[in-house]
Amino acid sequence: MLRTILYREWIKLRTVLLIVLSAEFCYAMYSCIKLKFFIRQITPVKVFGVISDNNYLFFDTLKMHFIILGLIVALLQFLPEMKNKTLKLTLHLPYDNAKMLFNMLKIGMSVLLLTSLFLTLIFLGITTWYYPRELVFAYFFNLLPWILSGIFSYALCSAICLEQRWPLRFLIIFVLYYASKTFIMQNAFFAYKEGIVYFLIITLVSLFVPYYSLRRFKEGK
């Protein structure tokens, strides 16, 4: 059954997956050139001092990328389900409703993680070329809450699509807006060293919000 669900979700997401992977590759190349110019402008011995003192993230414009990607994947997966209440067809399939939803979420998250992994590997490749290992690790650590913000925004946006009542939708939009901002607030290296566990917990909890909306849909609330 999972293969069958995957087949349908693939139809929904295949175009965006290809576009995102291509865009990410282009962005990575652009960042690489940007980093090269940055290094050329500074005396070689001072490069790492400037980077660590100023918390220079050559990919800081990427901050919003994961959140936006999470929103896009959720909209592509769940908006068609809500159009003409097609979700009723999905819930009528001979498969456990909760499993159906969580499998759909798993597939959406896999797309997010796949694109994140692709980007992370490219950046790690670039940074390993230029930077010492400690700085590479610092960059990688700064990417983690951003990746989680993508999953968080994906989960809540899915819930917004599935939710039937506008007051609850607005509440989730409010939470999504302010909570996702906290994931990307800090640029400093290791700024989220203490908070990463909490972000992980919040993200995991957020994955149950769509299930709550689905239950309400089933009860006609």
Partner: peptide, 10 residues
Amino acid sequence: IEGHVQYNYM
């Protein structure tokens, strides 16, 4: 379902 709803994108 009312309106012969099906997955429009397929």
